[in-house]
Each structure stands twice: as structure tokens, then as C-alpha cells.
């Protein structure tokens, strides 16, 4: 013991260490009380319920929006925090699912905004109407094992505007109807249709550009595809 230090220093330090140990021991058992701050057991059961019903699709939506696993993991947690905060205000005007998606989209957009604020321009195409050319996000394994066309398509998604990307992901990857997409984005159905059409055109153009760049003049032959 360093004799220069007063006794209460050691007493306080041991209290802190004891508390840390207790924290670790009780950590997992206290998980159920995560939402106890003003939320209680009800919030806990709400979390379990929402997790079972929507977690994977919410995660997938955010992953395709951000193209980054760690970010998606972080943001999906933020979605739960916001849901817990706003759950009492949920009026049931929209379905639980579209409400969750709206929150997930807002969380994602806030994240893009923050990135902008920090001058990190990974998502420079966030600005609704601009397109970026380069994309440095790694391709996830699930995509990397698929054919080149799908990989290119995945890369092109990032180069659409945020609105276009939202519509494409909701409609084709999440399998939402036009009406559900409109509800999530709080748009009219016609705006969804127009944005979807523009997004498909943009992707087509990007695929063509990519194909021209990669093939350097050699025309790319698309895979034969059976229409459903």
C-alpha cells in the first residue's frame, strides 16, 4: 500500500471493485430489467414480442440501407430504444410492423445525417437526389457467394438516392406491398410507384455503366432468367 495515499482512497477503491464484480455477476440476470426505468415488465415482454416477430427483417432492412454489419447491429438496438420510448404513444393508426419500419428508417436517416455532420462521406448519396460512383463497403458473405450480376446489383443499390433505396429494399427485398411502403414512408402510393420506377431506371443505368467499365467495351451477356 502506498503510504502517501489516504486510507479512504483504498476504501472507496474496494467499494468500486466490489460493485464492478457484482455488476458482472448480476448482468445477465438483470437483463430482464433493462426496460424497468419507467417501463417495467410490460416493456420487457414487448421487447420479446417484437424481437420474435420482426427482429430479423428489421435488421435486414437496416443492413441493406447502411451496407455495414456493425452499423446495422448498432442501429437495430437504437430502434428498440426508440420503440420503448415511444411505445405508449403508439396509437395503432398504422400496423405495428409499418410503425417499426418507420422508426427503423428514421434511425437510419439520422445515422446518415450524423455521418454527414462528421464529414464522413461514405454515404454521400444520402442527399436524396445525388449519386455517388465509388463504393467501398465490403460485400457480405451471403452476397459474395452469388453470381456477379447479383454482386453488381448489390453494389448499385448504394448508388441510388436514399429514397430510391428505401423503396427498392422495402418492395423487393422485404416484400412489402405498395400500400405498406407508402405507409412506412408516409408518402402517397403514386410517389412510391414513381420512385420505384426511377430507382429501377437508375439501377439499370448503373448496371450498364458498371458492365461497360468492367468489360471495357465487351458487351455483357445477362444470365438467362426464368420469369415467375
Amino acid at each position: 500500500m502506498n503510504s502517501n495515499l489516504p486510507l479512504f482512497f483504498y476504501q472507496r477503491r474496494s467499494v468500486v471493485i466490489l460493485r464492478m464484480k457484482l455488476d458482472r455477476v448480476t448482468f445477465y440476470t438483470s437483463l430482464t430489467t433493462i426496460f424497468m426505468n419507467g417501463c417495467g415488465e410490460m416493456m420487457n415482454s414487448v421487447f420479446h414480442d417484437l424481437y420474435e416477430k420482426y427482429h430479423q427483417e428489421m435488421y435486414q432492412f437496416i443492413y441493406y440501407m447502411t451496407k455495414n454489419r456493425e452499423t446495422a447491429e448498432d442501429l437495430v438496438q437504437e430502434v428498440y430504444i426508440r420503440i420503448m420510448k415511444a411505445y405508449e404513444r403508439f396509437e395503432g393508426k398504422s400496423s405495428e410492423k409499418t410503425w417499426m419500419y418507420s422508426i427503423a428508417r428514421n434511425v437510419t436517416i439520422d445515422y446518415f445525417r450524423k455521418q454527414k455532420g462528421w464529414k464522413d462521406k461514405i454515404f454521400a448519396n444520402f442527399d436524396w437526389n445525388r449519386q455517388s460512383i465509388e463504393d467501398y463497403q465490403p460485400i457480405p458473405e451471403e452476397v459474395a457467394i452469388l453470381n456477379e450480376d447479383i454482386q453488381n446489383l448489390y453494389q448499385c443499390l448504394n448508388r441510388c438516392t436514399t429514397n430510391q433505396r428505401s423503396v427498392i429494399i422495402l418492395r423487393y427485398i422485404q416484400g412489402m406491398s405498395i400500400a405498406e411502403t407508402a405507409e412506412i414512408l408516409t408518402w402517397s402510393e403514386s410517389k412510391v410507384k414513381t420512385t420505384q420506377h426511377r430507382a429501377l431506371k437508375a439501377i439499370k443505368k448503373l448496371l450498364e455503366d458498371l458492365s461497360a467499365k468492367e468489360g471495357s467495351g465487351i458487351e455483357k451477356i445477362p444470365m438467362e432468367r426464368k420469369r415467375n
Binding site: L153, Y172, I203
Partner: peptide, 11 residues
């Protein structure tokens, strides 16, 4: 069709 073929990404 290609968009629908994009894989499911799981947490």
C-alpha cells in the same frame, strides 16, 4: 427478379 434474389441477411 434479380432484386428479389438478393439474399436474406441475418443478425
Amino acid at each position: 427478379d434479380m432484386l428479389r434474389e438478393l439474399p436474406k441477411l441475418k443478425d
